[in-house]
Computed example of a mutant assay.
Amino acid sequence: MSQPLLSIIVIAYDMPRQALNTLISLSPAYQQGVGTDDYEVILVENRSKRNMDAEAIARLPGNFRYFLRDEPGVSPAAAINFAFSQAQGRYIGLMIDGARMVTPGVVHYALMAWRMADDAMVVVPGYHLGENEQQFHLTHGYCEEQEQRLLDEIDWQNNGYALFDISCLSGANPNGIFHPFMECNCLFLSADVFREIGQADERFDLPGGGALNLCIYRKAAMHPRTRAFMLAGEGSFHQLHGGVTTSEVETRDAILRSQSEQLTALLGQPYRSPTVEPVLLGRVPPQAFRYLKHSVERGIHRAQRCAARNENMYADQWLKQNGNVS
Protein backbone atom coordinates (compact mmCIF):
# COMPACT_ATOMS: atom_id res chain seq x y z
CA MET A 1 0.00 0.00 0.00
CA SER A 2 1.22 3.52 -0.81
CA GLN A 3 1.59 6.09 1.96
CA PRO A 4 -1.82 7.66 2.71
CA LEU A 5 -2.32 11.39 2.28
CA LEU A 6 -4.51 11.64 5.38
CA SER A 7 -4.33 10.08 8.85
CA ILE A 8 -7.51 10.30 10.94
CA ILE A 9 -6.94 10.03 14.70
CA VAL A 10 -9.78 8.66 16.83
CA ILE A 11 -9.56 8.39 20.63
CA ALA A 12 -11.88 6.08 22.57
CA TYR A 13 -12.48 5.15 26.18
CA ASP A 14 -15.27 2.96 27.57
CA MET A 15 -17.49 3.27 24.49
CA PRO A 16 -17.14 0.06 22.43
CA ARG A 17 -20.49 0.29 20.60
CA GLN A 18 -20.24 3.98 19.86
CA ALA A 19 -16.61 3.86 18.74
CA LEU A 20 -17.31 0.96 16.40
CA ASN A 21 -20.09 3.00 14.80
CA THR A 22 -17.61 5.85 14.37
CA LEU A 23 -15.11 3.54 12.67
CA ILE A 24 -17.79 2.14 10.37
CA SER A 25 -18.68 5.71 9.38
CA LEU A 26 -15.01 6.32 8.52
CA SER A 27 -14.62 3.17 6.40
CA PRO A 28 -14.33 3.38 2.59
CA ALA A 29 -17.45 1.20 2.35
CA TYR A 30 -19.42 4.11 3.86
CA GLN A 31 -17.40 7.17 2.83
CA GLN A 32 -18.20 8.23 -0.72
CA GLY A 33 -15.71 9.08 -3.45
CA VAL A 34 -12.59 7.79 -1.68
CA GLY A 35 -10.57 4.58 -1.67
CA THR A 36 -8.66 2.55 0.87
CA ASP A 37 -5.30 3.97 -0.16
CA ASP A 38 -6.38 7.59 0.30
CA TYR A 39 -6.37 7.59 4.10
CA GLU A 40 -5.74 5.65 7.27
CA VAL A 41 -7.62 5.63 10.56
CA ILE A 42 -5.61 5.38 13.78
CA LEU A 43 -7.72 4.34 16.75
CA VAL A 44 -6.18 4.66 20.19
CA GLU A 45 -8.28 3.17 22.97
CA ASN A 46 -7.47 3.87 26.59
CA ARG A 47 -8.09 0.67 28.51
CA SER A 48 -11.34 0.40 30.46
CA LYS A 49 -13.65 -2.33 31.72
CA ARG A 50 -15.30 -2.35 28.27
CA ASN A 51 -12.64 -2.52 25.59
CA MET A 52 -13.40 -2.79 21.89
CA ASP A 53 -13.42 -6.03 19.92
CA ALA A 54 -10.12 -6.02 18.04
CA GLU A 55 -11.39 -8.69 15.64
CA ALA A 56 -14.41 -6.56 14.73
CA ILE A 57 -12.08 -3.68 13.91
CA ALA A 58 -9.84 -5.96 11.83
CA ARG A 59 -12.87 -7.04 9.77
CA LEU A 60 -13.69 -3.47 8.72
CA PRO A 61 -12.82 -2.56 5.13
CA GLY A 62 -10.12 0.06 4.96
CA ASN A 63 -6.82 0.91 6.55
CA PHE A 64 -7.42 0.81 10.30
CA ARG A 65 -4.68 0.66 12.92
CA TYR A 66 -5.72 -0.11 16.49
CA PHE A 67 -3.72 0.57 19.66
CA LEU A 68 -4.90 -0.34 23.17
CA ARG A 69 -3.00 1.68 25.78
CA ASP A 70 -2.81 1.82 29.56
CA GLU A 71 -2.90 5.51 30.37
CA PRO A 72 -1.88 6.75 33.83
CA GLY A 73 -4.17 9.80 33.61
CA VAL A 74 -7.75 10.61 32.64
CA SER A 75 -7.02 12.89 29.68
CA PRO A 76 -6.77 11.81 26.02
CA ALA A 77 -3.92 14.25 25.33
CA ALA A 78 -1.12 11.67 25.59
CA ALA A 79 -3.10 9.24 23.41
CA ILE A 80 -3.53 11.92 20.74
CA ASN A 81 0.19 12.62 20.68
CA PHE A 82 0.97 8.90 20.52
CA ALA A 83 -1.39 8.51 17.57
CA PHE A 84 0.21 11.51 15.88
CA SER A 85 3.62 9.86 16.26
CA GLN A 86 2.22 6.88 14.35
CA ALA A 87 0.53 8.91 11.61
CA GLN A 88 1.86 8.55 8.08
CA GLY A 89 -0.25 11.20 6.38
CA ARG A 90 0.72 14.70 5.35
CA TYR A 91 -2.61 15.81 6.80
CA ILE A 92 -4.43 14.68 9.91
CA GLY A 93 -7.98 14.48 11.14
CA LEU A 94 -8.71 14.83 14.85
CA MET A 95 -11.66 13.12 16.52
CA ILE A 96 -10.83 13.35 20.21
CA ASP A 97 -14.23 11.95 21.13
CA GLY A 98 -14.55 8.53 19.52
CA ALA A 99 -18.33 8.59 19.92
CA ARG A 100 -18.87 10.85 16.89
CA MET A 101 -20.19 9.32 13.69
CA VAL A 102 -19.75 11.28 10.47
CA THR A 103 -21.64 11.71 7.21
CA PRO A 104 -20.48 10.02 3.98
CA GLY A 105 -18.78 12.99 2.30
CA VAL A 106 -16.43 14.09 5.06
CA VAL A 107 -13.22 12.43 3.86
CA HIS A 108 -13.87 13.23 0.18
CA TYR A 109 -14.35 16.94 0.84
CA ALA A 110 -11.42 17.14 3.26
CA LEU A 111 -9.16 15.76 0.53
CA MET A 112 -10.77 18.13 -1.99
CA ALA A 113 -9.99 21.11 0.25
CA TRP A 114 -6.28 20.26 0.18
CA ARG A 115 -6.35 20.00 -3.58
CA MET A 116 -7.69 23.55 -3.57
CA ALA A 117 -5.45 25.00 -0.86
CA ASP A 118 -2.53 23.40 0.94
CA ASP A 119 -3.26 25.54 4.01
CA ALA A 120 -6.84 24.28 4.35
CA MET A 121 -8.22 23.64 7.84
CA VAL A 122 -11.42 21.67 7.37
CA VAL A 123 -14.22 22.13 9.91
CA VAL A 124 -17.11 19.68 10.22
CA PRO A 125 -20.17 21.02 12.12
CA GLY A 126 -21.23 19.06 15.21
CA TYR A 127 -24.61 17.66 16.19
CA HIS A 128 -26.10 15.49 18.93
CA LEU A 129 -28.22 12.47 18.10
CA GLY A 130 -31.72 12.86 19.50
CA GLU A 131 -34.14 15.77 19.66
CA ASN A 132 -32.30 17.49 22.51
CA GLU A 133 -28.72 18.07 23.59
CA GLN A 134 -27.54 15.00 25.43
CA GLN A 135 -26.65 16.82 28.65
CA PHE A 136 -30.42 16.87 29.13
CA HIS A 137 -30.98 13.21 28.24
CA LEU A 138 -32.43 12.24 31.64
CA THR A 139 -34.93 15.12 31.60
CA HIS A 140 -36.17 14.04 28.17
CA GLY A 141 -36.02 10.30 28.79
CA TYR A 142 -33.35 9.68 26.16
CA CYS A 143 -31.15 6.61 26.54
CA GLU A 144 -28.72 4.46 24.55
CA GLU A 145 -31.44 1.95 23.70
CA GLN A 146 -33.65 4.67 22.22
CA GLU A 147 -30.69 6.01 20.28
CA GLN A 148 -29.95 2.60 18.84
CA ARG A 149 -33.56 2.27 17.72
CA LEU A 150 -33.33 5.61 15.93
CA LEU A 151 -30.15 4.51 14.16
CA ASP A 152 -31.74 1.23 13.13
CA GLU A 153 -34.86 2.99 11.84
CA ILE A 154 -32.94 5.21 9.45
CA ASP A 155 -30.60 2.40 8.30
CA TRP A 156 -27.72 4.81 8.78
CA GLN A 157 -25.01 2.62 7.26
CA ASN A 158 -26.80 2.78 3.91
CA ASN A 159 -28.33 6.24 4.39
CA GLY A 160 -25.76 8.30 6.23
CA TYR A 161 -27.29 11.72 5.57
CA ALA A 162 -30.43 10.60 7.41
CA LEU A 163 -28.44 11.26 10.59
CA PHE A 164 -29.56 14.89 10.14
CA ASP A 165 -33.16 13.72 10.56
CA ILE A 166 -32.57 12.36 14.07
CA SER A 167 -30.30 15.07 15.46
CA CYS A 168 -30.07 18.55 16.94
CA LEU A 169 -27.35 21.21 16.89
CA SER A 170 -24.56 21.00 19.43
CA GLY A 171 -24.83 23.60 22.17
CA ALA A 172 -21.21 24.59 21.55
CA ASN A 173 -22.19 26.06 18.17
CA PRO A 174 -25.96 26.66 18.36
CA ASN A 175 -26.14 29.45 15.78
CA GLY A 176 -24.79 27.53 12.82
CA ILE A 177 -22.04 28.04 10.31
CA PHE A 178 -22.15 31.84 9.95
CA HIS A 179 -21.24 32.38 13.61
CA PRO A 180 -17.78 31.78 15.11
CA PHE A 181 -17.36 28.19 16.22
CA MET A 182 -16.36 27.55 19.83
CA GLU A 183 -14.96 24.12 19.02
CA CYS A 184 -14.81 21.45 16.37
CA ASN A 185 -14.97 17.76 17.17
CA CYS A 186 -14.03 16.66 13.66
CA LEU A 187 -11.16 18.83 12.49
CA PHE A 188 -8.67 18.38 9.64
CA LEU A 189 -5.37 20.24 9.23
CA SER A 190 -1.84 19.71 8.03
CA ALA A 191 0.47 17.63 10.19
CA ASP A 192 2.98 20.50 10.11
CA VAL A 193 0.48 22.96 11.57
CA PHE A 194 -0.53 20.50 14.30
CA ARG A 195 3.13 20.09 15.18
CA GLU A 196 3.68 23.86 15.21
CA ILE A 197 0.80 24.54 17.61
CA GLY A 198 2.35 22.11 20.09
CA GLN A 199 0.17 19.10 19.27
CA ALA A 200 -2.11 18.14 22.20
CA ASP A 201 -1.01 20.02 25.31
CA GLU A 202 -0.67 17.32 27.96
CA ARG A 203 -1.14 19.88 30.72
CA PHE A 204 -4.86 19.49 29.97
CA ASP A 205 -5.14 16.73 32.54
CA LEU A 206 -8.82 16.90 33.48
CA PRO A 207 -11.20 14.00 32.65
CA GLY A 208 -11.87 13.86 28.93
CA GLY A 209 -9.12 16.41 28.37
CA GLY A 210 -11.19 19.24 29.81
CA ALA A 211 -11.16 22.09 27.29
CA LEU A 212 -8.29 20.65 25.24
CA ASN A 213 -10.52 20.48 22.17
CA LEU A 214 -11.23 24.21 22.34
CA CYS A 215 -7.54 25.01 22.71
CA ILE A 216 -6.55 22.95 19.68
CA TYR A 217 -9.29 24.48 17.55
CA ARG A 218 -8.43 28.08 18.47
CA LYS A 219 -4.70 27.59 17.94
CA ALA A 220 -5.31 25.92 14.58
CA ALA A 221 -7.82 28.54 13.43
CA MET A 222 -5.50 31.39 14.44
CA HIS A 223 -2.38 29.86 12.91
CA PRO A 224 -1.07 32.18 10.16
CA ARG A 225 -0.97 29.28 7.67
CA THR A 226 -4.52 27.98 7.91
CA ARG A 227 -7.58 28.84 5.86
CA ALA A 228 -10.91 27.60 7.22
CA PHE A 229 -13.09 25.43 5.00
CA MET A 230 -16.55 24.60 6.36
CA LEU A 231 -18.35 21.44 5.23
CA ALA A 232 -21.84 22.87 5.54
CA GLY A 233 -23.58 19.72 4.30
CA GLU A 234 -21.62 17.25 6.41
CA GLY A 235 -21.65 16.60 10.13
CA SER A 236 -20.25 14.73 13.09
CA PHE A 237 -22.93 13.26 15.34
CA HIS A 238 -22.36 12.64 19.02
CA GLN A 239 -23.67 9.39 20.43
CA LEU A 240 -24.78 9.12 24.05
CA HIS A 241 -22.09 7.45 26.12
CA GLY A 242 -21.79 9.17 29.48
CA GLY A 243 -19.31 11.81 28.34
CA VAL A 244 -17.84 14.33 30.77
CA THR A 245 -19.79 17.34 29.44
CA THR A 246 -22.56 15.52 27.54
CA SER A 247 -24.18 13.83 30.52
CA GLU A 248 -26.89 15.19 32.79
CA VAL A 249 -25.15 15.23 36.17
CA GLU A 250 -25.50 17.59 39.14
CA THR A 251 -21.81 18.48 39.03
CA ARG A 252 -21.80 19.55 35.37
CA ASP A 253 -21.64 23.29 36.10
CA ALA A 254 -18.68 22.77 38.44
CA ILE A 255 -16.95 20.62 35.81
CA LEU A 256 -17.40 23.33 33.17
CA ARG A 257 -16.04 25.98 35.55
CA SER A 258 -12.90 23.96 36.26
CA GLN A 259 -12.39 23.36 32.55
CA SER A 260 -12.77 27.06 31.78
CA GLU A 261 -10.32 28.02 34.52
CA GLN A 262 -7.71 25.59 33.23
CA LEU A 263 -8.22 26.77 29.65
CA THR A 264 -7.73 30.41 30.64
CA ALA A 265 -4.61 29.55 32.63
CA LEU A 266 -3.00 27.53 29.84
CA LEU A 267 -3.94 29.95 27.05
CA GLY A 268 -2.85 32.93 29.11
CA GLN A 269 -6.12 34.75 28.37
CA PRO A 270 -9.87 34.12 28.54
CA TYR A 271 -11.10 31.95 25.71
CA ARG A 272 -13.07 33.38 22.81
CA SER A 273 -14.20 31.75 19.62
CA PRO A 274 -11.95 32.64 16.65
CA THR A 275 -13.71 34.89 14.15
CA VAL A 276 -12.29 33.45 10.96
CA GLU A 277 -14.35 33.46 7.77
CA PRO A 278 -14.83 29.97 6.34
CA VAL A 279 -14.91 28.93 2.71
CA LEU A 280 -18.04 26.81 2.25
CA LEU A 281 -17.30 23.54 0.50
CA GLY A 282 -19.39 20.59 -0.64
CA ARG A 283 -22.96 19.75 -1.47
CA VAL A 284 -25.77 20.24 1.01
CA PRO A 285 -28.21 17.30 1.05
CA PRO A 286 -31.92 18.01 1.59
CA GLN A 287 -31.73 16.50 5.07
CA ALA A 288 -29.44 19.38 6.11
CA PHE A 289 -31.55 22.19 4.64
CA ARG A 290 -33.20 23.05 7.97
CA TYR A 291 -29.80 23.60 9.56
CA LEU A 292 -28.63 25.72 6.65
CA LYS A 293 -31.82 27.81 6.94
CA HIS A 294 -31.21 28.25 10.67
CA SER A 295 -27.60 29.26 9.98
CA VAL A 296 -28.64 31.86 7.41
CA GLU A 297 -31.29 33.37 9.70
CA ARG A 298 -28.88 33.59 12.63
CA GLY A 299 -26.13 34.83 10.32
CA ILE A 300 -28.29 37.70 9.04
CA HIS A 301 -29.04 38.69 12.62
CA ARG A 302 -25.32 38.66 13.45
CA ALA A 303 -24.44 40.71 10.36
CA GLN A 304 -27.02 43.34 11.30
CA ARG A 305 -25.78 43.45 14.88
CA CYS A 306 -22.14 43.83 13.81
CA ALA A 307 -23.07 46.55 11.31
CA ALA A 308 -24.96 48.49 13.99
CA ARG A 309 -21.90 48.32 16.24
CA ASN A 310 -19.46 48.99 13.40
CA GLU A 311 -17.77 45.65 14.18
CA ASN A 312 -15.93 43.41 11.76
CA MET A 313 -17.75 40.05 11.62
CA TYR A 314 -14.46 38.31 10.94
CA ALA A 315 -11.97 40.41 12.87
CA ASP A 316 -9.55 37.53 13.43
CA GLN A 317 -9.45 36.89 9.70
CA TRP A 318 -8.29 40.48 9.21
CA LEU A 319 -5.64 40.04 11.92
CA LYS A 320 -4.34 36.89 10.25
CA GLN A 321 -4.16 38.54 6.85
CA ASN A 322 -2.19 41.40 8.35
CA GLY A 323 0.20 39.19 10.30
CA ASN A 324 -1.09 40.10 13.76
CA VAL A 325 -2.42 37.01 15.53
CA SER A 326 -2.29 35.84 19.13
Rank of each mutant, 00 (worst) to 15 (best):
Val34Ile: 14
Glu40Trp: 00
Glu40Lys: 08
Val41Ala: 00
Val41Glu: 00
Leu43Pro: 04
Leu43Cys: 11
Val44Lys: 03
Val44Glu: 02
Glu45Lys: 06
Glu45Ala: 05
Asn46Ile: 15
Arg47Ala: 14
Asn51Gln: 11
Asp53Cys: 15
Asp53Met: 12
Glu55Ser: 13
Ala56Gly: 14
Ala56Arg: 15
Ile57Arg: 12
Ala58Val: 11
Ala58Leu: 08
Ala58Asn: 08
Arg59Thr: 12
Pro61Asn: 12
Pro61Phe: 01
Gly62Glu: 06
Asn63Glu: 06
Phe67Val: 05
Phe67Thr: 15
Phe67Gln: 13
Phe67Glu: 09
Arg69Phe: 06
Asp70Cys: 13
Glu71Lys: 12
Gly73Thr: 03
Val74Met: 09
Ser75Pro: 03
Pro76Met: 03
Pro76Ile: 04
Ala79Gly: 03
Ile80Tyr: 03
Phe82Tyr: 05
Ala83Gly: 07
Phe84Thr: 02
Ser85Gln: 13
Ser85Lys: 14
Gln86Leu: 15
Ala87Thr: 03
Arg90Ile: 08
Arg90Asn: 13
Gly93Gln: 01
Gly93Cys: 07
Leu94Val: 09
Leu94Ala: 00
Asp97Ile: 10
Gly98Thr: 05
Arg100Gln: 09
Arg100Lys: 14
Val102His: 01
Thr103Phe: 02
Thr103His: 02
Pro104Gln: 04
Pro104Thr: 10
Val106Glu: 00
His108Met: 14
Tyr109Leu: 07
Met112His: 14
Arg115Ala: 14
Arg115Tyr: 08
Met116Gln: 13
Ala117Cys: 15
Asp119Trp: 00
Asp119Ser: 07
Ala120Phe: 00
Val124Ala: 00
Pro125Ala: 03
Pro125Lys: 00
Gly126Leu: 10
Tyr127Ile: 10
His128Ile: 04
Glu131Tyr: 04
Glu131Asp: 09
Asn132Ser: 13
Gln135Val: 14
Phe136Val: 10
Phe136Ile: 11
His137Thr: 06
His137Tyr: 02
Thr139Ala: 11
His140Ala: 13
Gly141Asn: 15
